[in-house]
């Protein structure tokens, strides 16, 4: 196991896509120290910025201690192994990851788990915007994987989601599950407006309150409970909405009936 600790506070962003179990695997400590990183526009090596320690356990895991808020692209494209961040994580953490696990014991910045294909990301703090959303202009969303957030998330989480599960124990911002086609998103507490806009498939489950519903959703039924994934199902009752009609979508939006009495008027259409 490798442990990295920043040698100082970073003023400018650090680009460190080399912090990745696949990269570290089968490298000696000296080779790891020589891996290239950039601080702003300066080309440096990993040991210029971090204290690198190795302990004897053979597991291919990396522990990052300290504030990694300015360190971008940690675990980018990782396929195996584990990264544990004891502190805040920077942008694009776990982008395009295809396996393995990332645990963030702190807050995660935007674009965490962007375009991921498989693997697990656990965030024991808040997450920023564009969690599990694709790159600009791309319609290739997250294809699979499991993301769990203990805190709240920002805006546009799970855009173009194609598969996988996102569980949020706190609040969610606007445009949750924008344009999603499959997969599941679960929000325990409050959810902002425009949830599920332009979605054409998949399901969003809102167990808490919702600020406002898109006009382009139509009520379908009331269900007593709903399954988030194979391991979890939530007790309702839930209003089930279909949408987004503007995109001829058949995505399902489950909204807690008890927590949202303002939506009662929809019942007349049932």
């Amino acid at each position: 196991m490798i442990t990295l600790t920043p040698l100082r506070n970073f003023d400018v962003p650090v680009h460190a896509s080399c912090i990745n179990p696949d990269e570290f695997k089968s490298k000696t400590l000296k080779e790891i120290a020589e891996l290239p990183v950039t601080e702003g526009n300066r080309n440096l090596t990993l040991s210029d910025l971090f204290k690198i320690e190795q302990d004897k356990t053979e597991t291919p895991s990396i522990t990052l201690n300290g504030d990694f808020k300015k360190v971008k692209r940690v675990g980018q494209g990782m396929k195996t192994g584990e990264i544990i961040i004891n502190g805040n994580a920077g942008m694009h953490t776990g982008e395009r990851m295809a396996g393995g696990k990332i645990v963030i014991n702190g807050n995660a910045d935007s674009w965490t788990g962007s375009e991921m294909k498989a693997g697990t990301i656990e965030i024991h703090g808040d997450a920023g915007d564009y969690l599990a959303s694709p790159y600009r202009g791309s319609g290739t969303g997250v294809k699979g994987g499991y993301i769990i957030v203990d805190g709240s998330v920002g805006n546009e989480v799970g855009c173009y989601l194609k598969g996988g599960v996102i569980k949020i124990k706190g609040n969610a911002g606007i445009f949750l599950g924008y344009h999603m086609t499959d997969g599941a998103i679960y929000v325990e507490k409050q959810c902002s407006s425009r949830t599920g806009a332009a979605m054409t498939g998949g399901k969003i489950i809102l167990a808490g309150t919702v600020t406002e519903l898109m006009p382009s959703f139509t009520i379908d039924s009331i269900k007593p409970k709903v399954k988030v994934d194979a391991t979890q199902s939530v007790a309702g009752p839930f209003y089930v909405f279909l949408g987004d009609l503007a995109d001829h979508g058949t995505g399902k939006l489950f909204v807690s009936k008890t927590n949202n009495p303002q939506l009662a008027f929809y019942e007349k259409y049932l």
Binding site: P215, S216, T218, I219, L245, Y266
Partner: peptide, 16 residues
């Protein structure tokens, strides 16, 4: 929301 509603109307969808 208004654009979305207009889109539904242009696409001959009824709003709730």
């Amino acid at each position: 929301e208004i654009f979305s509603a207009l889109r539904c109307l242009v696409n001959d969808q009824e709003l709730d």
